[in-house]
Amino acid sequence: MLILECPYCGVKAEETELSPGYEAHLKRFGPGASPEEFEAYMFARKNPKGVHFERWRHTYGCGKWFLAARCTATLEVFGTYPAQVSEPPADIIAKIQARRPGWQPDGKVTK
């Protein structure tokens, strides 16, 4: 059972205190969007084996949504950060690359 540290209140919350919110950093497409854009927003999910960015809500705590970077294969957590960003912050990327050399934010791995 995962532990994720809420970046707002600092509580190292266990999974039962949290609600999952699936993939993070999705771009919303509203009226006027093409079918492809809307499909990407609504349905196309990366579901990677490896580094993943997720939304979590500290439901049984401060009630805030935050984002987590973790590895879906080993369950390592690289970091958590507030939700008010549209892409992973540089310090989180650096933490991931420190543990996954060659990993790139687009999901590709350079040797």
């Binding site: 609600s19 919303r28 809500r57 009630g63 949504w65 939700a83 008010q84």
Partner: peptide
């Protein structure tokens, strides 16, 4: 309520 907070926190912050 959670739906409202989701949009306010994560999209229209």
């Amino acid at each position: 309520h959670a739906w409202m907070e989701d949009w306010l926190q994560c999209e229209w912050w």
